[in-house]
Simulated assay, not measured.
Amino acid sequence: MDAEPTLYDALGGMPALRRLSDVFYERVLADELLAPVFANFNQRHVEHVAVWLAEVFGGPEQFTASLGGHRSLLHSHLGLGIRDEHRRRWLDLMSAAVGEALPDSPDLHASVMSYFEWGTAIAQEVSQDPVGTDLGEPGPTPRWGHQGLAT
């Protein structure tokens, strides 16, 4: 019996994740509520998010190798002060972007959005700490599969 493909492969690999990141950030930067949260946004962010998602969903470990891994991602959220309404709006925009940019599959949509639900809760929690906070060693970049967090 063949193993189930990773989410990375099922979604269409790096081209699909770049498309998702592009579609999503177009929406975010045009959004009245979220645009101020991304005031220091630069275009490299779009690519970094795609590289992060590739690693999380079972693809190449390029975020860890080149961009600082899990610790770096968490540190990028320090001091943002993400509120509940920011998180809800972010999830709404991401769900719409997933629907537009990724394969039309309710199962894949649910798997991807379960990661974003989980990850945005962590990002919101970390965002309450001021810049410069020592978050300790968060461990390796998490891996997310069709059934959720891989152990």
Results as ranks from 00 to 15, higher is better:
101 A>R: 00
130 P>D: 11
109 H>P: 09
59 G>E: 04
71 R>E: 10
124 Q>N: 14
109 H>V: 11
31 D>I: 09
137 E>N: 12
67 L>I: 11
143 R>H: 10
120 T>E: 06
151 T>A: 14
68 G>M: 04
68 G>L: 08
103 P>R: 00
32 E>D: 09
30 A>P: 09
57 F>E: 00
8 Y>L: 15
8 Y>W: 13
12 G>F: 03
25 Y>R: 02
61 E>N: 03
15 P>I: 10
35 A>I: 15
38 F>H: 03
73 L>I: 04
40 N>A: 05
54 A>P: 13
116 F>S: 03
45 H>W: 01
147 Q>P: 15
89 R>N: 07
121 A>V: 15
136 G>Q: 10
81 G>K: 01
99 G>C: 12
55 E>Q: 10
129 D>K: 02
117 E>Q: 13
5 P>S: 05
86 H>A: 05
130 P>H: 10
31 D>C: 08
34 L>F: 10
132 G>V: 06
86 H>P: 10
136 G>R: 01
121 A>H: 03
80 L>M: 14
141 T>N: 09
101 A>L: 06
84 D>P: 15
63 F>E: 05
115 Y>K: 01
5 P>R: 03
67 L>A: 11
14 M>F: 12
20 L>Q: 03
66 S>D: 12
150 A>R: 05
32 E>H: 07
134 D>C: 08
28 V>L: 09
23 V>A: 12
21 S>A: 09
100 E>H: 05
81 G>P: 15
122 I>P: 10
95 S>A: 09
140 P>W: 04
77 H>Q: 01
64 T>R: 03
71 R>A: 12
138 P>E: 05
116 F>P: 11
118 W>D: 08
32 E>T: 13
88 R>G: 09
70 H>G: 14
103 P>E: 01
144 W>N: 04
63 F>D: 02
83 R>Q: 15
92 D>M: 11
44 R>Q: 12
83 R>G: 14
151 T>I: 14
13 G>Y: 09
99 G>L: 14
44 R>E: 13
134 D>T: 02
50 A>V: 02
20 L>W: 03
58 G>Q: 01
11 L>P: 06
61 E>C: 08
121 A>M: 13
32 E>Q: 06
9 D>M: 06
103 P>G: 03
105 S>T: 08
135 L>Y: 06
148 G>M: 09
26 E>I: 13
29 L>H: 04
53 L>K: 00
34 L>R: 02
91 L>P: 13
50 A>D: 00
41 F>V: 08
77 H>V: 08
41 F>H: 03
121 A>K: 00
137 E>S: 09
12 G>D: 01
146 H>C: 07
42 N>D: 13
75 H>V: 08
138 P>V: 12
